[in-house]
Structures are given as structure tokens and as C-alpha cells.
Amino acid sequence: MKSHTPKNQETTRFHVVPHCFWRYPIVAGIVTVAVILLGMLVGSPNWPQATIKKVTTEQPGGTLWAVAQELDHSSSSYTNTQEYGMINPATRLVVDPLKSASWALAPNVNEALSQFLAQPEQQQVRWAMNYDNSIRKALKMGSMGGAMSTVPVPSLTMLSHLHGDFGPVPVIANGILQLARNGYLQNYFQGISPGNTFEYVNIWLYDQPYLLNTAIKNGLTDDQWGMIKERGFFVGPWYLIIPAIAHVLLPGGSSGPGFVLWNALIAFFFIVLFPLIPGLRDIPRYLKLYKLIYATDNIQHSPLVQSVKRSLGDETNASI
């Protein structure tokens, strides 16, 4: 055996030995069989998508309220207007679908829509805002629900008792509800966006209280460490823990730009600072945890070598 012990006696001593190739097929086989077995026996997260029909059937009051918010420009879909294809949600998600289905709607809905469109935008928004506010008041909500708590959903009975200067907005909202419940709306949204089938469906659904409420109940929003969890499954993407920490714990990390900035900073630290800055890069040497990693050198530790070493005296620090 050649000795490869470097001159510097500080470093771990070693020999060049025949490599343990026999492990490769065995370990690779174990890992391959393990993932196949896990896939077969444990499965993977597979919760069916929510459809417009299902959501509006379960929570029709939420749909009426969402229409009010789309018309008064306070719905979450206003965040998405920069995307290709997306325009003003009041037009895209309320007015256009109703126009497209005028042949199937009751005359009073068509009349309500004409009455609504005949007015300037200011008046349209005022009507919708009155409706929106009176729903909030009936639900005893503040101006904004907290990020972590679910939003209450109004019932149809409750909505039918509301009175105020709503103009044609409640009738319009009921027209959308009707189209949503009989499945027309989902088909319509998918049909007008064949290259991006779920764009308007998901944007529309995200305006409903249903999707976010369900996520909050299941602990799946970003603030609830949802980034590393899966609905209805016990193992999620735990390896997203670094972005998740940036999002949940670091100041400003919950906004888009803050999130990206923190991740870039963390990456910079690990890629550049940690391995290059003197002091920082020496931490592993001081920690000495490499002792847990390195395999013991069987030659250095063989009884023969040990006894030779003992007879020579330790101070020689001999390496064979």
C-alpha cells in the first residue's frame, strides 16, 4: 500500500483502498424498490379539483357576494388583471358571461343587465358597493377579514332580507348564480380560453370565500406553512422549508418582491459567502463533525499497525 498521508499531520490520515463498488447495485436496488413500494402502497396526494358547480351549490350566498365584489372592484381577481387574457373582472367574470347566455336567462336578468350597463361606471360601482357593505354588516364583519381566519359565508335567506340602494346588482348576481349552478359558467370560461383552460375558472373560484376558507381550515395557506404541506396527505414538500421560512418568518417575506429578495439573499449566503469568507468557511474544520462522516481507515486501525505504533511510541505519529 502506498501511503498518501500528506505532510501536514493535522489532517485526517488515510490510505487508498479498493472502492466498495458492491454497495452500488444493492443500495440502488433498495432505493428503487422503496420508491416503487411507497408509490403502490402509500400513494400520493390526489384531492379532486373544485368545480364552479360544486362550489356554488354548496355556498350560493358566497357567489352572490363575490359578484358584488367583482362589480365594486374589491375582489381578489383584480390582482390578476396583468395576466395575458385577463381584463377587468367586472366585464370578464360577470357582464360577458351574462351577455353570452342572454337566450337562456329570465327576461328580468337581461333587463337588469341593460339597466346596469346604461349607467356610468361610477354608479355601477356605487350600487355594488352598497350591496357588498350591507352583506358585510349583516355578517358583522369589520372592513377586512384577518388573513388567517375563515370568512363567514352569507346564506341565501340572509341575503334575501337585505334592503338598500343596490340597483340591479342582486338580480345580476342571481343570474350568475343560476349559470354557475347549472354548469354553464364553467363551460363558458373553459371555452373562451382554450389554451389556458383553468385561467378564468380558477380566478373566478378564488373570488369565492370557498377556496381560501377550505385552505385555511386545512392549514394550507402560506402563513400556515402551507408551502410544505399537502391537502389530505401526510408528507408534503418539506424540502421547501427554506422558502417557507423566508415567507413566514422573515420581515416582508409574505409579499412577492420580499419573498424573492429573501430567497436570493439566502442563496447568495450559501453559494458565495459561506464557502468563501475566511472564518465562515472554516466552521466545519472547528466543528470537527467530519469525524462522523469519514469512514475509519481500516489499515491505520488494524491491530498490527496499532501494535507497531505502540512499540514505536505515539510521538512518532507514524503512518504506515
Binding site: 396526494p45 390526489n46 384531492w47 379532486p48 379539483q49 373544485a50 381578489s76 390582482t79 390578476n80 395576466e83 383553468f198 380558477n202 380566478i203 373560484l205 378564488y206 377556496l211 377550505t214 385552505a215 394550507l220 395557506t221 402560506d222 402551507g226 399537502e230 391537502r231 415567507h247 409574505s254 409579499s255 412577492g256 418582491p257 419573498f259 424573492v260
Partner: peptide
């Protein structure tokens, strides 16, 4: 699936607002 649907919108309002 449901997770795709929710995450698409949740990220649309966070990461993809930049």
C-alpha cells in the same frame, strides 16, 4: 388536482404579482 388549483391562485396573488 385541488392542490394545483389552490396553489395556482395563491401564488398568483404572491409570487406572480412581481
Amino acid at each position: 388536482d385541488w392542490e394545483s388549483q389552490f396553489v395556482s391562485m395563491h401564488s398568483d396573488d404572491m409570487l406572480f404579482t412581481i
